[in-house]
Simulated scan of single mutants.
Amino acid sequence: MGVIAMDKKQITLYYSSENSIGKQLNAYVESSGKDHLTIDISKTNVTGTQWAELAEGLGKDVSDLVNTDLPDFMETYGENYVDLDNDGWLKILDKNPRFLKNAIVIKGDKYIELTSASDYKQYIDPDSAGIEKPYK
């Protein structure tokens, strides 16, 4: 059993308000009229256990959650390949939440990585026929 609560009727969004996509996704979720929980990682501490669970739910390593292509990341950690263990990547997300690569939505027991605001409409909002599109 994980530490992140899951509810079939609730959308949970992990995002950073320090980037425009995160702000847009938060606006979509807030205005959706659906039960939701939004977690702005820039303002709310996400534990290492939660990060690990999010990564596992997405079928990724914790390192895959970090956007190493950001100029700020390269300035802080260098432009060369950064080789860290999971604890190192967790510390990066803890100290620099702006380095989160993409927003993450949990709906029921499904974890979905959202790379754009249109992803929210595609994977979370029902289409015009009222049928939800399948998850990736």
Rank of each mutant, 00 (worst) to 15 (best):
I21W: 07
D72H: 00
I41Y: 01
I39D: 03
S63E: 13
E56F: 08
L25A: 04
G57K: 06
E53P: 06
I11D: 08
L13R: 15
I41Q: 02
S20D: 11
D64P: 09
S32W: 06
N45C: 01
N19R: 15
V66K: 03
W51F: 13
T49C: 03
G48L: 02
E79M: 11
H36Q: 12
E18L: 08
T47R: 02
L58Q: 09
V46N: 04
V46Y: 02
E30G: 00
V46T: 08
D72R: 09
L70Q: 15
L25D: 09
I41S: 01
H36R: 11
A52M: 09
E56G: 11
V66Q: 04
N19C: 15
F73E: 07
V29I: 13
V62H: 07
T68M: 11
K43C: 01
W51L: 03
E79N: 09
V62N: 06
T44F: 03
D64K: 14
V66W: 06
A52W: 00
D64E: 15
T47D: 05
M74V: 02
G78P: 04
G48V: 03
D64C: 10
K43W: 00
K60V: 08
I21K: 12
I21E: 14
G48E: 06
T47G: 13
A27P: 00
N19Q: 11
P71N: 09
S17D: 14
S17W: 00
I39R: 13
G22W: 08
P71E: 09
W51I: 03
D72S: 10
L58Y: 14
T76D: 03
D40V: 01
G59N: 05
Y15R: 14
T49D: 12
D61G: 11
V46W: 01
A27Q: 14
G57L: 09
E53Y: 03
N67R: 13
N67H: 08
A27C: 01
E75F: 00
L37E: 14
G78K: 04
N19H: 15
M74S: 07
E30V: 08
I41L: 03
A52G: 14
S63M: 10
A27H: 12
S32T: 06
N80F: 02
D40N: 14
N26A: 13
S63F: 07
G78T: 06
E53D: 09
D61F: 12
A27S: 13
N80Y: 02
G78N: 09
Q24H: 14
T12W: 02
L70P: 09
I11N: 05
S31F: 07
A27E: 14
T44C: 02
K34C: 03
T12I: 10
I11Q: 11
S16W: 00
E56H: 12
V62Q: 10
L54S: 08
K23D: 07
L65A: 04
W51N: 04
I41W: 00
T38Y: 01
G78V: 06
D64H: 15
T38H: 01
N67F: 05
Y77L: 01
S32H: 09
Y15W: 12
L70Y: 03
I11R: 10
N80S: 14
Y28A: 04
I39T: 05
A27N: 13
E79K: 11
E30L: 10
V66C: 03
L54C: 08
K34G: 02
V29G: 08
S31R: 13
W51Y: 13
D61H: 14
G57N: 07
D69L: 13
L13M: 12
G33R: 05
A52L: 06
G57R: 05
D61T: 10
